[in-house]
Design a protein around this nucleic acid. Structure first.
Lengths: 263, 263
DNA sequence: GAGTGGTCTAGACCACCAC
DNA sequence: TGGTGGTCTAGACCACTCT
């Protein structure tokens, strides 16, 4: 049994608006007004067909729209449900402050503990390779320079939320714990500082788009959820770029917070 | 005539992967490899049906996937095209610096001129009303306090890119140019500073999601393009929140850049 | 086994666009 | 006028979930 109680209105066949859009409008309205609650099941396709007197494809087109908007999630063999919003992590702009690194904690650990969730990391891969052109530019390296490439996936309470690929110039990383899968307490930023590259500032560039199929798979993204692409560059106290981190984040799991001085 | 030259591969009927996904994969691959260039027309539905030997709905399902991913755009009566990416505006974190306001320019004007585009503003509405609860919280106001509400839509070279709604506590705005549709040179921030509220810092909170139908209409968003929701709070030199600005931005038109100190 | 959504077929008529 | 995509019908078979 689905939420058939919401099936009250009918279609206006004289309307210019396509039938499947009218059905989507009515269901969207029911969700917005709370007549369909988070996690609640929508009427089944069969119920919708019978109520509106339309073919199955028309119903499916309506349901597809809601799914594209990120409002619902279809579960094969079970039904269509109002999507429950995952807990959102708020990333504060001081999350790379030195005081956190001093405590021997990596940024992701700090953020997760503040949010009361259990962090985990998997799919760790470390290699040495030529970086993409835009990364080489950000690092101020020649196109054929080599970098240590660290990629990994972060999860919260077992749910994947973000993938990240870091590029560190090979002359800074080669032969140090930075080139090990486990770089030790405080992460690679702590190692960079120990080797004299005190971190002075970061820049972040934030974009948003729909995920590629690979990204959707790695982050277990349901349809209708975009991703943030966040590219962070770390600079040391000589003004040298010492790391570029290219991150893909499930946009429904993050709120990015920044402080801007006005002067 | 569409880009029928890309129709080389066939479907593997023995594969577990659905036929429409295989077709989508092949077309996506052609786009990624540049065999289908930006702005180029894809093979028509008829051509795809004949080449793969499938029904029209199967072809349309494949094309819908690409559209959801933001890769293509269908134009009724013309064809399906590889989406051309609009020029991206990079928003730097110093865009509210006082030196720009001193020159009598509003932030959007400054950004646009840097990008070499012609800015315009329409749908300007100014009213006085109770703000939403989260806005009242950010402004440190009681729930029943009143604010001047300024909403508008920004366009670049005639293309809408962003809508914004500003909330200013009524005691700061009432009876000043801030409550006029045209607040004068430098915008409302200049007016606030003239009345003694020197701006000290801003906070921005950035989220991304798929647009509502209203947002898609106002921003003329094609399918598969998410929006940024950016909520900015302005604080004066007494630490008082003097404005909250709630902005919806076409995510394919913006790149947000921030500086983070490492201290 | 009954009910759900996922995939696919084979048609139909329509609205829009370019020639 | 012919080709394009947009909408809709009426079926079919399948995979998955729950009981």
């Amino acid at each position: 049994m689905g939420g058939a109680a919401v099936l009250t209105e009918q279609i206006d066949p004289a309307s210019d608006r396509a039938v499947y859009r009218q059905i989507a409008d009515q269901l969207r309205e029911a969700i917005a007004r709370g007549r369909l609650q988070e996690g609640e099941q929508l009427p089944s396709e069969t119920q919708l067909m019978e109520h509106y007197g339309v073919a199955r494809m028309t119903v499916r087109n309506a349901l597809r729209i809601l799914q594209e908007e990120g409002l619902t999630i279809a579960e094969h063999g079970r039904g269509v449900y109002v999507r429950a919003r995952p807990p959102v992590r708020r990333l504060a702009s001081d999350r790379f402050a030195q005081r956190y690194r001093m405590a021997g904690k990596a940024a992701f650990t700090v953020e997760s503990e503040q949010a009361g969730a259990t962090p985990s990391v998997d799919m760790i891969q470390v290699s040495e390779a030529r970086p993409p052109g835009d990364v080489a530019d950000r690092l101020g390296l020649a196109d054929d320079a080599r970098t240590v490439v660290r990629s990994r996936r972060y999860s919260l309470d077992g749910r994947p939320v973000e993938t990240a690929v870091s590029y560190i110039p090979a002359d800074l990383a080669r032969g140090t714990p930075i080139a090990d899968p486990n770089p030790g307490p405080g992460g690679i930023y702590a190692r960079l500082e120990e080797s004299g590259h005190t971190l002075e500032r970061f820049t972040e560039e934030v974009a948003a788009r729909m995920p590629t199929p690979d990204e959707a798979r790695l982050l277990a993204l349901p349809p209708g959820v975009p991703v943030f692409r966040l590219v962070r560059t770390a600079y040391d106290n000589d003004g040298r770029a010492v790391e570029v981190c290219d991150t893909i984040m499930a946009a429904n799991a993050y709120l990015l917070a920044y402080d801007l001085p006005a002067r």
